[in-house]
Design a protein around this nucleic acid. Structure first.
Lengths: 159, 159
DNA sequence: TATTGTTATACTCTATAACTATA
DNA sequence: TATAGTTATAGAGTATAACAATA
């Protein structure tokens, strides 16, 4: 495995050299929400992701996970509910909470975005030489492992 | 260089296996704007980036690069100008255009975000084993090369 | 009283459409 | 007339603060 042009030995230099590539990768990821139909905003999609991932999500938990205020989460759910992507339910345990769940349409939308990202990423992977592709996949795997260890639990900004 | 767990031979499977890692990377990238002072919105930052990158940027070009309407770009510049990050100038060639330039404060802000991203990325790189780090840097370099070839010129969504 | 959500108000970001000024 | 920008209007997303309902 050869050296990357312009990458020094210090992590700061390496990060500098990787910056443009990471920007491109981030752009590919951020672009997907605009490609699905019906088109929803990035924020609405983040909410659908957060609801779809967790179990028994109430509004307070959703707001925490998204890193927004409670009122914002409430308004967001108003529109997602009106659009038919999400439902407010009343859990039997506590009548003052709401239990957020995705509708079939909501799940379909989330799946569409994931599929879109996967397809676009795959398209670039296909055009890469096998060696570079293998390096990227191994490198990403190592990055993810290191990330989950070092990164504190933060709001889910990655859509 | 070993195989990544869960990665098949097809690019679609590989993309699937890489999805979580890319999400983490995209999240790291998207998080930086919130860490700078004075805090600006992601959209304002994108505008500063677009203005700082190009030469002789007018409002129409800015709107195209950002993928927003002309009026949105105009309002965005209103606030950035009021905040002292950007200036509207009149180019000698055409008095109906405006020539957007960053102020020193605007340049400083853009540099802060880049520095923040670099630092956070470097922190994760440091905690990775040397082999994984090298693989990631080489892989990202290969990805970027493939991306610039295959990717059509799109609005700059990557902040 | 403490917790969960909703609503009131105000601001940013967004688009379409109407407008002004320049070429 | 065509092009470059601005402004009017309307709607989404945002936060703080005030409110209602439940525990």
């Amino acid at each position: 495995m050869g050296r990357v042009q312009g990458a020094g030995d210090r992590p700061e230099d390496e990060a500098q050299a990787a910056a443009e590539a990471v920007s491109a990768l981030a752009a590919l990821w951020a672009r997907a929400p605009q490609a699905v139909t019906p088109r929803v905003s990035a924020h609405q999609l983040r909410a659908l992701h957060a609801v779809g991932r967790g179990h028994e999500v109430n509004l307070t938990r959703l707001a925490e996970q998204m890193g927004v205020s409670l009122s914002t989460a409430s308004r967001l759910c108003d529109r997602l509910e009106a659009a038919g992507f999400l439902e407010r339910g009343v859990p039997p345990s506590s009548r003052r909470e709401v239990c957020l769940t995705l509708t079939d349409g909501g799940r379909r939308l989330v799946a569409q975005v994931a599929e879109c990202r996967r397809r676009h990423l795959a398209a670039v992977l296909e055009s890469m030489p096998a060696e570079g592709r293998a390096a990227l996949l191994n490198g990403l795997h190592a990055f993810h492992a290191a990330w989950t260890v070092t990164c504190p639990p933060r709001p889910e900004d990655g859509t």
